[in-house]
């Protein structure tokens, strides 16, 4: 507990969990806990970010992350502007850096950026003086998703240390997987990634995870399982076995869960593909915390917005 008191936020940006310390993450999770309580109040608003402007700059379609950031910013009394790729000058060929500098010139305080290219948030952060929060960049990181996953786990199980967490699905193309691995391993959680071999990226064991392509093994002694969305619409998934076959071999079903711990926690970053990576019964069942994750996401993003706005520039 002494650590909490000495913890200090020094980051202008939140680009990924790889770049945060355990103490940084604890600070966000603890702060999120106090913000979480606000969401159950009658008047769900505090003035922490009054007078600040948050710009959601989204180069990829996303409803849930964008709305979650918007709600989070509004609960903190910030002004929120949403820029989606279709409605901005981006399509006319303005570069990401130019767009960022223009947003800065408009005197915004925080840019929340979602981009299809890995490293886009990092590049933007290097080129503007205002804060940048990575809302997902390519296959690289999705730090606020991992933070809300960790917040949910900590809330349910009281700690992260020593937990057995399995991440199942398209690990190779998943920013959610990477951020979860960076974050959870800092707390000494034991991570297993489970996917068909072609969806395991090279060298991932160096991140301190176990690899398996056997779903029963991944479920074996897991305290929690994070089920990733399978994107069969991707171009490079054409060579991949059918959805049906994937579901047969890796889908999370009630049948499979019989062999797992009784109170195993089922997480999913959404949006879920029912009957592809998870059955409806499991998604809606008692082990599922999928909707709690959505609510927790607001609290975690409030904490992130709060701390980056506190960073001394």
């Amino acid at each position: 507990m002494t650590k909490k008191k000495t913890a200090k936020w020094v980051h202008k940006d939140l680009l990924g969990l790889e770049y945060l310390s355990k103490e940084d993450i604890e600070l966000i999770l603890d702060t999120a806990e106090s913000f979480r309580e606000i969401l159950d109040r009658k008047i769900k608003k505090v003035p922490a970010l009054r007078g600040k402007t948050v710009v959601n700059l989204f180069y990829e379609p996303s409803t849930r992350t964008r709305v979650s950031f918007e709600v989070a910013a509004k609960r903190l009394s910030a002004d929120v502007i949403n820029i989606a790729v279709e409605s901005s000058s981006v399509k006319k060929g303005e570069t990401l850096n130019d767009t960022g500098k223009n947003i800065e010139a408009l005197k915004a305080d925080i840019i929340v950026v979602r981009h299809n290219c890995s490293g886009a948030a990092t590049m933007l952060a290097r080129n503007v003086n205002i804060s940048v929060i990575n809302a997902g960049d390519g296959w690289h990181e999705h730090p606020t998703q991992a933070l809300l996953d960790m917040f949910t786990l900590r809330g349910k199980l009281g700690k992260l240390e020593g937990l057995n967490v399995s991440i199942v699905g398209d690990i190779a193309h998943s920013r959610v997987a990477r951020s979860n691995i960076w974050g959870l391993t800092k707390f000494g959680a034991n991570i297993t990634v489970c996917a068909p071999k072609i969806l395991i990226p090279p060298g991932i064991e160096k991140m301190g995870v176990k690899i398996t392509d056997n779903i029963d093994e991944a479920l074996g002694n897991a305290d929690a399982i994070n089920v990733l969305r399978m994107q069969f619409e991707r171009d490079d998934m054409k060579a991949f076995p059918s959805q049906l076959e994937y579901f047969k071999n890796f889908g999370i079903t009630e049948e499979r869960l019989k062999k797992a711990k009784k109170d195993i926690i089922i997480m999913h970053p959404g949006p879920i593909n029912r009957g592809v990576e998870i059955s409806s019964e499991v998604a809606d069942g008692t082990n599922s915390v999928i909707l709690e994750q959505v609510t927790n996401g607001i609290a975690v993003r409030m904490a992130v917005l709060f701390w980056v706005s506190q960073a001394k520039l």
Binding site: S118, G119, G138, W139, E141, R178, P201, P202, G203, K206
Partner: peptide, 13 residues
């Protein structure tokens, strides 16, 4: 380069 770095950066190798 294809390997841990491409995985870490989330880029094609």
């Amino acid at each position: 380069n294809f390997g841990f770095t491409s995985t870490r950066l989330g880029l094609k190798g």
